[in-house]
Nucleic acid binder design. Sequence first.
DNA 1: CCTAAACCCCTG
DNA 2: AGGGGTTTAG
Length: 436
Amino acid sequence: MIISIPVGFRALPLPVAQLSLAAVLQCGQSFRWSVFPLPYPDFSVNPDAPRHEYRVCLRDRVVCLRQTPDTLFYRAVYPSPSLDPKEEANKDAETLSWIRDYFQLDVDLLDLYSQWSKLDPVFHKLKDRFEGIRVLRQDPFECLLSFICSSNNNITRITKMVRALCTQFSSPVISLPPPNAEPGTELEPYHPFPPPSALSAPEVTATLRTLGFGYRAEFIQKTAKMLADNHNTSATSSAKMQEPAELWLTTLRQMSTSEARNELLKFMGVGRKVADCVMLMSLDKREVVPVDTHVHQIATKHYGMSSSSKSKAVKTTMTPKLYDELSSKFVGIWGEYAGWAHCVLFTSDLKAFASYGLETSSPSPSAPPSMSTTPTISAASTPSASPAKRKRAASKINVVKTEVVATVAEVSEDGSLAERVKRRRQLRVVATDPSK
DNA sequence: CCTAAACCCCTG
DNA sequence: AGGGGTTTAG
């Protein structure tokens, strides 16, 4: 099979089993990729030719990707066309290294798939249908704001909102025609994701509301302002560089899962689910399994999971306790890369998963053995403390109101989710209203 | 410590 | 009517 390299693209050998762009770029991890169908006259001539081009704007360039069963084609387009060749080569190397980082290509997905298959019969039956699904390593600020938008929402609308955020609050770096377009086709502007400083002004809330963000408008602006106020203390030297607040968010990669979660929960509009998504998809917390209502449904139906306290039907509400139970059970099943396994099963092809359930649900509830017992969970995912210590910490917060920050720092080692939320509320007061 | 309702917009 | 959630009030 001969595949010609598209003009301007470089080739990176990569089996589609290691990465499937079609599955990964549109499954609700990132909401900013544009997809273009490639108008080939006849695919029967070359059935393996790429059908789509994917594009996204990164800082000063637009990255374009195409894929065949064994090759990833990539190129970047820059605003200034006449660079000297050496500079050009540098930038291309930069683009390749960004791709390797963004798709985490050093992680062998085939290894993981075979591990999960041994650990989980349900996964074993499904794995062939979900090739090449991996967790992206996204920019933390973009990830945080995108998932604040995700509450009570669907992928289509989140995508529209994130797009609106970019077109409204950042300048386009370049305008390009769609791939394989006729001459004279209208150019399309490409906007990078806006930095915190562009979203922190109070008027931003109203603008976002007119753009259809609803109650999330305030969350976005408050979160951006909190980041800018706390971390953008010195000016950013270059427009191409990240702001200090963005760099600070990235440092959460160095922290433990529970520490990073505590930091994220301080932001307005960020609860457990959003925090976990941000940690999994941008902060290297690969064991974290975010739980939403859909995961809950599948968990009870296919894995025999149900809240230990309430043995009601599938109609139970998602309490913090239930969330913890479900999340830790999946970590117990899938292990170190549990979040990645979750991604394969739940955020790719939900309909295929549902149909699988219809086929096999009646004969035998083939739940994995680890379901029945409480699995051992790493300390990082479920911090525990003596009840006495916890109580002391909680009461301290209620009494002391003036030195909240110091108190929080002291007790932030542990605590239930509810307690963390309480602490967050007080922290927000300090962070957003210094006068009080 | 835990539960329930509102929130804003889009889709069925 | 209800949704891949969070906040606020009880």
